[in-house]
Every structure is written in C-alpha cells, then in structure tokens.
Design a protein around this nucleic acid. Structure first.
Lengths: 321, 321
DNA sequence: GTGAAAGCGCTAACAC
DNA sequence: GTGTTAGCGCTTTCAC
C-alpha cells in the first residue's frame, strides 16, 4: 500500500488518522490509492499498536428479558456514535458465567458495561481495577454507575393503592442479589411504614411469565387485595393466572408491575412503574467513553428517577376490610 | 513474563496454546508464574499474529423486536462454547446502517452473521467475498444460510381457517425487502389457490404493536372474517385494536400471528406459526464456525420447518358467507 | 510535510 | 522439549 502510493508507511497511517498534518494532495493521493486497492487500516494492528481497540463489552443477565433489549439498543447506538463496537455477553442470570464473560472480555476491550450484575461486590471491585467498568443497577462505591431508582415509582404505587382502599399488599419479589430487587423491597418497606399499609412478601426468585402465573394461588390465599410485582413479566403472568382462575382484575384484585416494558399490551393494561432502561444504556455508555477519554477517576453515580404509570390493572377494593 | 519464569517467550506461548508439546513441569511452572503475575495472553496480539481474532459479529435489524433476542442468546451461547466472542450490531431496519455495520465489522472479525438483512443481494454478495458470512432468513445462492420456512405453518393456518368456515382472509404484511415477508406472502398465495380461499393484502410496512392496532379499522371494512399477520407483534396490536373496538376475537374475527414470540401471554392466547429463531441462531453460528475451520466453500442451505400452533384467537365464522 | 526505525505482544518456522 | 528469530500491520518518536 505504502509502496503503491509512493509514500512511507507512516504517511499512509497519517493520511487516515491525522490528515491535517499532511499536504492535501498527499492525503488525496493516498486515499485514492487505498480506494483503488480496497485498503482499509487493520483495526487489530491499530489496537495492538495504540493499546486502544475502540471496543467495549456489554454484559446482561438475559437478552431475552424485555427489560434489556432497549438498553442494549441504546448502548450500541451510542457506542457507534463514538466509533466504538460492542461485544455482547449473556450471563444467563448466573454469576459464574458472568465472571467468565468478564474474564474473556477484560483484556480485549477498553471498557465494560455491567448491567444488573449478579456478582459479589468484591469480585466486581477486583475487575474494576483491571479494566474500566460502568455498572447499571448496582450501587458500588468507587465504580461509576447508573441507577434506575424505582423508589419514587414504588412509593407512588403504594400511595395509589392506599387511595384505592387497599390495606394489605403483597410484593412478588425478584432475583436475590439483584440490586433492583433490594431497592424495591426497601422502598416498599419504607412506604409501608409511612402509610400504615402492611406488606407481605412472596418470593418468585426469577422473573418469568410462567412463574408469575404460578404465583396467583399464593396471592389469593394471602389475604391481600393487591400486589406489586418485581417486574412486568411477573405481573403479566399474574394477570394471566387470575384470568384463568376467573378472578377479575382490577375488580377483585389489583396488580402493579415494574419497568413498563409491556406498554399497554396486557389485558387489562398494566399499572406499572416507569422504565428508564433506554436512557440508562445511553448514559452508561457516555459515562464509560468519557472515562476512557479523560482517565478521570471521578466516582460518578447517575440516578434516573421513575414514576407511576397508572393504567387499568388497579382499582378500588371491592370489600374493604 | 518469560524472564520471570526463566523460559523463552515462545515457551510461554506454548504453555498456553499447546501445553502438550512441553514438559508438564515446564507448563506448570509457567502457569504458576503467570498466575502470580496476573498474566494473561493478549488476545489482540494473538489476533494480529495468527490472523484469527476468535470474534464474530451478529447483525440484526432490531434488538428490541422479540423475534431476535432468543436468536441472539442462542448465537452468543454457541459462539462462547466455541471460544468465540460476539459483536452485536443493530441496523434499525435500515440498509444503510446495516452496510455501515458490516464495514466496521468486516476487518475485525472472522465471520459475520447477518440476520434478516435489508441489503440488496449485490451488496451482500460483495461483502461475502471479503469475509465469511452466514445469512439468516435470506436466500442467496453461494452464501451459507439458514432459513426459517414459514411455508408449512402458513399453509396449515389457511387450512385451519378454511376448516373453520372462513372464505376471505386478510394478510397484514411485513417489511418490504424482508425475505420472510416475501416467503409468507407467496405461500399464502399458493395456499389460497389450493384451497379456494381469497386473500387480500393489507400493508403494515413495519412490525409493531401500535401499527397492528391501527390496522383493525381496515380489517373491519375489508370484508374478511380472519387475518394472518406478518408477525406476533402486529397480531397482538390487532387483538388490542379489536378489543378496544368491542369486536370479540375469535367470535367475530379470527387472528393468526407468526413467529410465536408471545407464547400464551396475549388475550386471547394467539394462534400462530411456530418460531425457530433460537435454533436458527444456534445453527447459524455452527455453520459459520464450521466454515472458518474447514474453509469449505460448500453452499450450505439449512431450512427449518414450522407448524401451526392453535390457541384461542381463531374460531368458526359466526355468519357463514 | 514526510521518512526511517523501533516497538506493541504474540506466533511460527527453524534450529539445536 | 525449548530457544532464536522474524514477522503480523500499525503508530510514533525522532530526524531531516
């Protein structure tokens, strides 16, 4: 290539990376020859030489969980805008696999976006020393993070239910070790104290339509008149379970979801806590790339607030207790 | 590292890549020192040296369309099993962006999985010369491809509707330029000829819940008693549109989806054509990696068959015409 | 403004 | 079985 253009290898390099330092004619000539020869700088060689690969990795617990695709999309888009490519890893909600992915990516990318990680604080902190990491939905000191704070939404949900006359509410909980689950649970507790509503907890372990569906009998025998589910998937399952059991929602039971990933597609349309996953992906990538550029070690902590989206799955209690 | 272990650089290399050629003691010693020093082979340098990066790219039209996440998941899993990492690109259903992604990935990966591409045959063929490509849902000679053949499912759907007494059926079509859409349309036409049922076409351009919803008025005034939608998302929107309009499904109108991405989560549960996207992702990666290993230029064409999944959104016509 | 040369971290002959 | 050496394709001082 250099020979074909009658210039030195370094000139070719500059023609692509810093054309300003070259005579316009030289740049033009080099680029023309490159075009003719179908030459493109080899990114792998560039990466080796500069130490910067222009690649980042994104690790999520489950690509198929509707919460993540919008985040992935937004992250990929933002990365692309900054001329970065993104690796995707699916940990399958499994901390071992998550760590494995982290290992595979660590020395191949400039930074990693770790979304809703299941790993322990210690392990994450360890990795964060090796490679720039930005967390989504995990609150760890000294690691830049963006948090979707369901707090406001959850508290609003409790207020909403109270205003409808509900006294006993069930929380169908999510994955243990998930920051979001802990956060939702604690806000629920706080709201309960504040409003005098009593909250009982029904574990679901993992989020899925089927699991939600199987939860309905427990809900029915729990003495509650409403529930707040860890996420919309569970809520949707609960809706289906009730429909099958002939329990009318919201007339006989009120259901609140979380994350608003289903929009108005459920029957009845789900009252839920708003979702900011798209924005989270966008902000997280910005944070990461910013960190790469400035090498600043500032302890960024970006909190995204939420609100309650009232639709049709919540209503007044039929028989006030 | 080599110095610290008291061996040559090549020995370190071999300790990791071909430990069989070394004395067990040497391997052990090298690995021990590596462990102590936190040394890991640099994949970028490996890639430059060997010409193989152990990376592949996956390009999809829309990560957020529920058809793709299971495919992405399966592909990533299979790649990982073969020790490959995967780049993800979202083309946003846009052929220009798709080409851009292709360009960015082409000289950075060993092969590319192009899913439901919107690009022209010519462009794809061109790229396929530069880098190994495997297509999903695009039938192009000389490029390995895996096709989800909705044919059987579609024909079964028409038979099913006919057996329920339907005479006029609408097809709510999908993205122009999509192979799947063309394939579904042509099978529909074939089935129409075979069964004597008449098919009219209602364009939807893009697949989404909202668009589906907006289609219902046209459906209602079309003189049909049933419809087959390009995919489940549209079908779900149609269901919602009917519910809102007070049209009972399946009593007054029957709805068939395609791809079975929603399972039984809709109300009523959607009759649909089965989906093989997970398998498609798995097979496609296998094909690609196989191609990389063997360098065989065989013209693989993998067809995945489908069937009709009858649920609750289809029923007998109320007033036979 | 452009060239020469060293080096990024590794692998792959080729010797011994 | 292990060491030596020459690249892989680029960037980057340092000269000129």
């Amino acid at each position: 290539m250099a020979a074909a253009a009658g210039v030195a290898r370094s000139t070719v390099s500059r023609a692509f990376s810093q054309p300003g330092r070259l005579t316009p004619e030289t740049v033009e000539r080099v680029l023309a020859v490159a075009e003719r020869l179908g030459y493109t700088p080899n990114p792998v060689a560039q990466a080796l030489s500069t130490g910067r690969s222009r690649n980042i990795a994104l690790i999520v617990p489950d690509v198929a969980n509707p919460f993540f695709p919008p985040l992935i999309r937004a992250a990929q888009r933002k990365a692309e805008e900054n001329d970065f490519c993104v690796f995707l890893g699916d940990s399958d909600e499994n901390s071992d696999r998550e760590q494995q992915l982290l290992d595979r990516f660590a020395n191949q990318v400039e930074g990693i976006l770790l979304v809703s990680p299941r790993l322990t604080d210690a392990v994450i902190t360890q990795f964060a020393k090796r490679v720039p990491i930005v967390l989504v939905n995990r609150d760890l000191d000294a690691v830049p993070r963006v948090l979707i704070d369901s707090g406001e939404g959850i508290e609003a949900a409790v207020d909403h239910l109270k205003s409808l006359g509900h006294q006993r509410v069930a929380y169908v909980s999510g994955p243990t070790g998930s920051w979001s689950n802990g956060q939702r649970r604690s806000h629920l507790r706080r709201a309960a104290d504040r409003t005098g509503i009593s909250i009982i907890s029904i574990p679901a372990i993992k989020s899925s339509f089927e699991i939600g569906k199987k939860t309905t009998p427990k809900l029915l025998s729990s003495g509650t008149t409403a529930c707040i589910a860890f996420d919309d998937l569970l809520a949707q399952g609960i809706l289906a379970g009730f429909a099958e059991a002939g329990v009318s929602v919201p007339d006989s039971f009120s259901v609140v979801g979380c994350d608003d990933v289903l929009g108005s597609t459920t029957t009845p349309a789900l009252t839920t806590v708003s979702n900011r996953s798209e924005l989270a992906g966008d902000v997280a990538v910005t944070l990461l790339i910013d960190k790469l550029r400035t090498h600043a070690i500032r302890d960024a902590r970006h909190v995204l607030s939420t609100h309650l989206v009232v639709r049709k799955s919540t209503g007044a209690v039929r028989i006030p207790t």
